[in-house]
Amino acid sequence: DETGKFLVLALYDYQEKSPREVTMKKGDILTLLNSTNKDWWKVEVNGRQGFVPAAYVKFL
């Protein structure tokens, strides 16, 4: 149950560059965990948590 969690859509592919980031593919649906930083949002994708560039995702 994803109640209270926001979902975001990956607009572009992103390859993680550090262990704190996660890789996503364009079209992936991600669970948004934290968006307090304007540049990097914490998400969960494929069972992994990490950061992606905020400009690469949008709210569903």
Rank of each mutant, 00 (worst) to 15 (best):
P53K: 03
V8E: 00
K42A: 08
G47K: 06
D1F: 10
D28T: 07
N37H: 11
Y14I: 01
V8W: 07
T23L: 02
K58Y: 11
G47A: 05
D13R: 02
G4K: 14
K5Y: 11
N46F: 07
P19T: 09
R48E: 06
K5R: 13
K42I: 15
K38R: 12
K26P: 03
Y14F: 08
W41D: 00
D28K: 03
Y14K: 01
G50T: 02
Y12S: 11
Q49H: 09
T36A: 11
N34L: 08
K25V: 10
K42R: 13
V45D: 03
R48P: 01
F6P: 13
T31K: 13
L11C: 07
T23P: 07
L60Y: 12
T31N: 10
G4Q: 13
P19M: 08
G50S: 02
K25H: 10
E21F: 05
G47Q: 06
N37V: 05
F6Y: 13
A55F: 09
G50L: 03
K42P: 01
P53F: 02
G4T: 14
V52N: 00
W41F: 11
K25M: 11
F6R: 14
L7G: 04
S18W: 06
M24S: 01
E2N: 15
P53M: 03
L9P: 00
D28Y: 04
A55M: 11
K26L: 05
K5A: 11
Q49V: 13
F59C: 10
E16K: 15
L7R: 10
G27K: 02
K42D: 04
G47D: 08
L33T: 05
S35D: 13
E21D: 06
D39H: 14
D28F: 03
V57Q: 00
K38F: 07
V45F: 12
V45A: 10
K25R: 13
V43L: 03
E21P: 04
I29A: 04
K38G: 10
A55E: 13
V45I: 14
N34I: 07
W40H: 03
E44F: 06
G4I: 13
T31I: 14
S18V: 05
D28C: 05
G50F: 04
D1E: 14
G50K: 02
K26G: 05
V52L: 02
E44K: 07
L60F: 12
V8K: 01
W41C: 05
V52P: 00
Y56D: 03
N37K: 07
A54G: 04
D39G: 11
Q49F: 08
E2D: 14
E44M: 10
L33I: 13
Q15Y: 15
L11M: 11
T23H: 04
K58S: 14
P53W: 03
S18A: 08
S35K: 12
V22Q: 03
R48C: 05
L7C: 08
K38C: 08
G27H: 05
G47N: 10
L32Y: 04
V57N: 00
A55I: 11
Q49A: 12
R48M: 08
L11D: 03
L30D: 00
E44P: 00
E16T: 08
K25S: 10
I29C: 05
L33Q: 04
K58L: 13
Y12T: 09
T3Q: 15
E44A: 09
K5D: 08
Q49T: 15
L60W: 11
G4H: 15
A54D: 01
V8I: 10
I29K: 06
S35H: 11
K26F: 05
A54H: 03
L32W: 03
S35G: 12
N34T: 07
Y56K: 07
R48F: 06
D13I: 02
L30Y: 09
D1Q: 12
F59Q: 12
F59M: 15
K38T: 09
V43A: 01
A55L: 09
D1S: 15
V57T: 04
R20N: 14
L60T: 08
F51D: 04
M24G: 00
K5E: 11
K5V: 10
T36E: 15
E21C: 06
V57C: 09
V8M: 09
D1T: 11
Q15F: 12
F59T: 10
N46S: 10
L30G: 09
V45M: 13
F59A: 13
Y14N: 01
K58N: 08
